[in-house]
Amino acid sequence: MELLVASAIGVLTAGGIYLTLRLRTFPVILGVSLLTYAVNVFLFTSGRLTVGAPPILQDGVDVYADPLPQALVLTAIVISFGMTAVVVMIGLGAFLGSDDDHVDDLPGEQSQTNESASESTS
């Protein structure tokens, strides 16, 4: 079981990293989402894997899954929604403003425009 979960985390991370390294905003956002899953599951597993023992107190039951990582991951899931929304908004705004959804400034282009701008002002 642990092997399955750990390898799932690994696969999610690898997929997330690959998509994060793409050149357009949308795949990068998806990649970050995959990484979010990986991180959340990883944090969750820090409470170790427990099957069939949710942390709802009941009389006569002594074994419960670790509730603390669950509480932390719960807020992390909600917050990551907020952050995804902000990043999507930024990406969308950039695309609408410039008709370009590349995440990279093409090397050299930036410095050239800077120099020409400073030349024109001086």
Partner: peptide, 9 residues
Amino acid sequence: GIATFGLSY
């Protein structure tokens, strides 16, 4: 991916 797998395992 391998690194995170190893770590979590």
